[in-house]
Simulated scan of single mutants.
Amino acid sequence: MLEIVPFYISSLEQERFIRIYLPKNYTIEDQSYPVLYMHDGQNVFQDNDAIGGTSLKLEKYLDENELNVIVVGIDQNSEERINEYCPWTCWEYSKKFLGKESIDGGRGIQYVEFIVNELKPFIDNNYRTLKEHTAMAGISLGGLISTYAMCRYPEIFRNIAILSSAFYRNQEEIEKLIQCTDLSLIESVYLDCGTKEAGDAEAISVEFLASNKAIYEILKEKIPNTKFQIIKEAEHNYLAFRDRVPKLFTFLSRKSNQFF
């Protein structure tokens, strides 16, 4: 069951839709559920709402597998996506990919504050949630902002899953933040990256993978349960991302579909 509700984001001074998936047994059984927060909400659940027409088809996957989890998809503001998903403005490393300097980014701090201070309390107060069992997942820049959220609020986002993360936009700063943050509360991190993220632009694909490997090398030293997968031939598109949907739920126990 998918609910779509308008939500005013005071920290960003704008309204957008929040898409809330409830498990099939939500109205039948009186139990509480872990919550997974995801970005790019239009592209999470259904193709007909997706930007570009291709989504993760997460509603279908969750219904078919009967996973006991609430998933909250936050719609993107396409015009502000880079600004909201990047905690800092772009630095020198990003020029390898962009070929120029960029002043985009810097509103990721407000975006994460919205999730923590406005959205999560709303979800916890209006739905049956396991308030202490909160995960976050993101794709591309959504992976960057998810990693930032984990570092800023490790007591809240104890499990994250990130696919084909565009760390390069804030590579220097996100590496520093991971290194200086106490991540002892984090339970699990899953990250992956394709070998053809940039399609035929081989040099960019190599750099993209190197960017993700660098983050993994830092994370694995601080979080024992960190897993990194290199997906051969995978490109940076939703058909490739859809194939990895099960990876988004590595924080769930296979036996009980609940948190470890």
Score class of each variant (00 low, 15 high):
Phe7Arg: 11
Phe7Gln: 05
Ser11Trp: 04
Ser11Ile: 07
Leu12Asn: 06
Glu13Leu: 12
Glu15Tyr: 12
Arg16Tyr: 06
Arg19Phe: 00
Ile20Lys: 06
Leu22Lys: 08
Lys24Ser: 10
Lys24Tyr: 09
Ile28Thr: 15
Ile28Lys: 13
Gln31Leu: 11
Tyr33His: 13
Leu36Glu: 00
Asp40Tyr: 10
Asp40Trp: 05
Gly41His: 02
Gln42Pro: 13
Asn43Gly: 03
Val44Tyr: 08
Val44Arg: 04
Asn48Ile: 08
Ile51His: 11
Gly52Tyr: 04
Gly53Asp: 12
Ser55Thr: 09
Lys57Met: 13
Glu59Ser: 14
Tyr61Leu: 03
Asp63His: 12
Asn65Asp: 11
Glu66His: 09
Val69Arg: 12
Val71Cys: 00
Val71Asn: 04
Val72Ile: 12
Ile74Gln: 07
Asp75Cys: 06
Asp75Leu: 01
Arg81Asp: 05
Asn83Pro: 14
Tyr85Asn: 03
Cys86Tyr: 01
Trp88Val: 03
Thr89Gly: 10
Cys90Ile: 10
Glu92Leu: 02
Tyr93Phe: 00
Lys95Trp: 11
Phe97Trp: 06
Gly99Phe: 10
Glu101Leu: 02
Ser102Cys: 07
Ser102Tyr: 06
Ile103Tyr: 09
Gly106Gln: 04
Tyr111Thr: 01
Val112Met: 09
Glu113Gly: 03
Glu113His: 09
Ile115His: 05
Leu119Ala: 10
Leu119Gly: 14
Lys120Phe: 09
Lys120Leu: 09
Phe122Met: 07
Tyr127Ile: 02
Arg128His: 09
Arg128Gln: 09
Arg128Met: 05
Thr129Tyr: 09
Leu130Cys: 13
His133Leu: 14
Met136Arg: 08
Ala137Pro: 13
Gly138Arg: 05
Gly138Val: 01
Ser140Ile: 12
Ser140Lys: 07
Leu141Pro: 15
Gly142Cys: 00
Gly142Tyr: 01
Gly143Leu: 01
Leu144Lys: 04
Leu144Ser: 04
Ser146Tyr: 11
Thr147Asp: 11
Ala149Cys: 11
Arg152Phe: 08
Phe157Lys: 08
Ala161Leu: 02
Arg169Ile: 07
Gln171Ser: 13
Ile174Ala: 02
Lys176Ala: 04
Cys180Leu: 08
Thr181His: 05
Leu185Met: 14
Glu187Thr: 02
Val189Thr: 03
Val189Cys: 06
Tyr190Cys: 03
Tyr190Arg: 01
Leu191Gly: 07
Cys193Phe: 08
Lys196Asp: 10
Glu197Pro: 11
Glu197Tyr: 11
Gly199Trp: 06
Asp200Gln: 05
Ala201Thr: 14
Ser205Trp: 03
Ser211Leu: 00
Lys213Val: 10
Ile215Gln: 03
Tyr216Ser: 01
Glu217Phe: 15
Ile218Glu: 02
Ile218Val: 10
Leu219Gln: 03
Leu219Pro: 07
Lys222Gly: 06
Lys227Glu: 08
Phe228Asn: 02
Ile231Trp: 00
Glu233Ser: 04
Glu233Asp: 08
Asn237Lys: 07
Ala240Gln: 15
Phe241Asn: 07
Arg244His: 08
Lys247Leu: 02
Leu248Ala: 03
Thr250Pro: 14
Leu252Pro: 15
Ser253Ile: 10
Ser256Ile: 02
Asn257Asp: 05
Asn257Gln: 01
Gln258His: 12
Phe260Cys: 11
Phe260His: 13
